[in-house]
Design a protein around this nucleic acid. Structure first.
Length: 388
RNA sequence: AACCGUUUCUUUGCGC
C-alpha cells in the first residue's frame, strides 16, 4: 500500500502522468484507495503540465469519493487558474473550498501569495497592492516567499524603487532574504543596466553568507549581453568554471547568438570552439545561431559549410536551419536552391512550417513570379485548412 | 507530519 502511494507520488512529480494514471486505475481495481496526498500529487502533476481541465475533473471526483480537499489541494488549483490568467475563477474556487467571505484576504499566506503573484503577472499592480495591504494587516506571518513575490512583481511592472522599498521592509520585518530574493533584485538591476550596483549586491550576498547559484550568474550574463557588454559577460563565464552552468550549452548558445547579432562573427565562431574545449557539445541551436550570422550576410556558401560541419558532427539540421537557408537562397534570388532545400527537408521528414512557406512566397514575390507565389499560398492554405 | 506559492532560461520570416 505504502509503496503504491509512494510510487504514485513519484510518477506525478516526474510528469509521467500516463503511468500514474494506469497505476491509479490498477489501484482502484485492487481496492486500494488513493488518499488525499495521492490526489494532491496527481493534481499538481496535471496542472504543471497544463491539464487543468482534467485536474478539475479529478477534483470533483474527490468530492464524490468523500475525500476532503485540504489547503494544498486548493492552492494547487488556484495556482493553475492564476497561471492561465483566470483570477476570478481562482477566487471563486478559493472561497468555495475555504468558505471564506468575499472581499476577504485569504487566511493562508500561500494562498495569498499565489493570488498576489497572479495579479502581478497579469499587470494588475493595484489588485496586487490591495491584497498586500490586506495581508499586512493580518496577523499571519509573512514569509520570505511572499516578499519575493512582492519584490519581483513590482520590478516586473516597472517599479524598481518600490521594489527596493519592499526589500527594506523585508529586512525591517526581520525576514532574512534568500538566494531568490537576491536573484530577483539582481535581475532588476541588470534590466536597468546598473551593473555597478549589481556587483555591489553580489558582494552583499556573500557577506550575508548567501552564495550565488547558477541563476545568479545567468541573470548577470544575460543582463550584460542585453546591454551589449559581451566582453564582461564572457569574462564571467571564466569565473564559473566549477559551476554546473558552464556545462549548460544554452548559456553558450545565447552568447554566440549575441556576438553574432552584434556583428562579431569571429568571436561567435571562437566561442563554439571554447565550449568544445570545456567539454560542452555544440547542438543544433549553436549551429543555427552561427548559420544565422552567415545568412544575414547573404553568405550562402559558408552557411552551407556550417551545415556540413554540423552534420559531420552528428547534428541534424531542423526546421529552423532550413528556414534560414531557404530565406538566404531567396534573398539571393536562387529560387531553385530554395526549392532544393525544401525537398531535402521534406525527404528527411522535417516538416516545413509557416515560416518556411512565408520565406518561399517572399522569394517568389521578389522575382515577381506572383503566379507561383499565389499558387504556393493556395497550396498552403489548403493544407492548413485555413479560411482564405 | 507529508503534498501547494517566488527568481533566469538559447536559434529562423512577417507584423505589432
Amino acid at each position: 500500500y505504502r509503496v503504491c502511494l509512494h510510487t504514485f507520488g513519484a510518477l506525478c512529480i516526474e510528469g509521467k502522468l500516463g503511468a500514474a494514471w494506469r497505476l491509479r486505475e490498477n489501484m482502484m481495481l485492487n481496492g486500494i484507495v488513493a488518499n488525499l496526498l495521492c490526489h494532491n500529487h496527481l493534481l499538481s502533476g496535471l496542472c504543471r503540465y497544463g491539464y487543468l481541465d482534467t485536474a478539475l475533473h479529478i477534483f470533483s471526483s474527490m468530492v464524490n469519493a468523500h475525500i476532503r480537499p485540504n489547503r494544498a489541494t486548493c492552492n494547487i488549483l488556484v495556482h493553475a487558474f492564476c497561471q492561465k490568467g483566470f483570477l476570478e475563477d481562482a477566487w471563486t474556487l478559493l472561497r468555495k473550498i475555504t468558505n471564506e467571505d468575499r472581499d476577504q484576504v485569504p487566511s493562508n499566506i500561500i494562498s495569498s501569495t499565489i493570488m498576489m503573484d497572479g495579479y502581478f503577472k497579469n499587470g494588475d499592480v493595484i489588485g496586487a497592492a490591495n491584497l498586500w495591504s490586506g495581508i499586512s494587516q493580518q496577523n499571519t506571518r509573512i514569509d520570505a516567499i511572499a516578499y519575493n513575490v512582492l519584490i519581483h512583481g513590482l520590478l516586473l511592472n516597472g517599479h524598481p524603487s518600490l521594489a527596493r522599498g519592499s526589500f527594506c521592509g523585508m529586512l525591517k520585518a526581520g525576514i532574512l532574504p534568500d538566494t531568490v530574493t537576491y536573484n530577483t533584485l539582481l535581475g532588476g538591476l541588470c534590466k536597468e543596466g546598473k551593473f555597478d550596483e549589481a556587483c555591489k549586491l553580489f558582494a552583499v550576498m556573500s557577506l550575508e553568507g548567501i552564495s550565488p547559484d547558477e541563476i545568479s550568474y545567468k541573470v548577470l550574463i544575460q543582463g550584460l549581453a542585453i546591454h551589449r557588454d559581451l566582453t564582461t559577460a564572457t569574462k564571467i563565464i571564466g569565473h564559473i568554471l566549477t559551476e554546473p552552468l558552464l556545462h549548460d550549452p544554452r548559456i553558450w548558445n545565447y552568447l554566440i547568438d549575441c556576438y553574432g547579432k552584434c556583428g562579431d562573427v569571429k568571436t561567435a565562431m571562437a566561442l563554439k570552439d571554447d565550449m568544445l574545449r570545456f567539454g560542452v557539445e555544440p547542438n543544433v541551436f549553436t549551429y543555427n545561431a552561427l548559420i544565422y550570422t552567415q545568412v544575414k550576410r547573404q553568405n550562402l556558401a559558408s552557411a552551407c559549410n556550417l551545415l556540413r560541419e554540423m552534420q559531420i558532427n552528428g547534428i541534424e539540421p531542423d526546421v529552423v536551419t532550413y528556414n534560414m537557408l531557404i530565406g538566404c537562397a531567396c534573398d539571393l534570388n536562387f529560387i531553385a536552391h530554395a526549392l532544393d532545400f525544401l525537398n531535402e527537408m521534406i525527404r528527411k521528414g522535417c516538416e516545413p512550417d509557416i515560416i518556411t512557406y512565408t520565406e518561399l512566397i517572399r522569394g517568389l514575390c521578389l522575382r515577381r513570379d506572383l503566379a507561383s507565389a499565389q499558387g504556393l499560398l493556395a497550396k498552403v492554405l489548403l493544407k492548413s485548412r485555413l479560411p482564405i
